[in-house]
Amino acid sequence: MFRAAFRSSILSTRPSALLTSSPSSFSKSLLIARRNLTQEAKEKILDAVNATPVVLFMKGTPDQPQCGFSRAAIQILDMQGVPPEKLKTFNVLEDPELRSSIKEFSDWPTIPQLYVNGEFVGGCDILLGMHQSGELESLLEKNGVLPPIEGEATKSSS
């Protein structure tokens, strides 16, 4: 009896809740983590992702990305035409604490990580997929980062 109750709170190596394909296992996985993150680090990140419409945590800088995935992410934002005043990037290689705390904050294991208006969007794979499908453009428009294009809002013109 006790064991069953504990299982969901410990979830040490491979959470048993995830071994089933029940729909609820997806949302359960979001509730784990958030353990070693200090309150201070958490607040710093919260402030950062809310201070600028588009925030990218990356390796290196937009001019000198230090990793192919971060390079791809910044190139996508550039192609989308995100104006520089609406974009803020953080170089996690310069800040080891941020590098680990952002992973925990977002519950996401890799860098880069994109936030739009304080909401976590995803990493490089998701960004690339959304860029190709047009979802990223509509997300940026919806959040007022890009001005809407009259007539053909989200459809690509190919």
Binding site: T13, I32, G123
Partner: peptide
Amino acid sequence: TLARHRFINEVLKN
């Protein structure tokens, strides 16, 4: 997509 990736991230966490 985000939920799917989170799920796989969790399965392959270690």
